[in-house]
């Protein structure tokens, strides 16, 4: 039995929705960040599934670029979280209200 395209896409959609739940419900900035990574992975899965079923390599190249951007984003994001922790002694996003009016 071969795997249909829909199976990959449904798994991808499920993981993306999980990431959305994580970003919207959690208060720990690190876990929110990890949920974003989960969403990026879900999108990568869609890219690869379509690349395979369209018999085109372009999707895989895109995944490569998504990973590069993810790596850059993680480096900068974690540096920001460290800076916030150094100033406020917390990474709870509910307590980070400096920009709130």
């Amino acid at each position: 039995m071969r795997v249909p395209l829909e199976a990959y896409l449904i798994l991808s959609a499920y993981l993306f929705a999980l990431g959305v739940v994580g970003v919207a419900t959690r208060r720990n900035a690190l876990i929110i960040f990890m949920s974003i990574e989960l969403m990026l992975n879900a999108v990568n899965l869609s890219f690869l599934a379509f690349a395979r079923f369209l018999n085109s390599m372009d999707g895989q190249i895109f995944v490569f670029f998504v990973m590069v951007v993810a790596a850059a984003e993680v480096a900068v994001g974690l540096a920001i979280i460290i800076t916030i922790y150094r100033n406020k002694e917390t990474v709870d996003v509910a307590e980070l209200n400096l920009l709130k009016w």
Binding site: M1, R2, L5, E6, A13, F16, A17
Partner: peptide, 18 residues
């Protein structure tokens, strides 16, 4: 929503892909 979008069946290749 995503499930509905997927369920509209893509006219690509059969299971397993080309």
């Amino acid at each position: 929503e995503l499930g509905i979008a997927v369920a509209r069946r893509f006219v690509l290749a059969p299971a397993g892909g080309p």
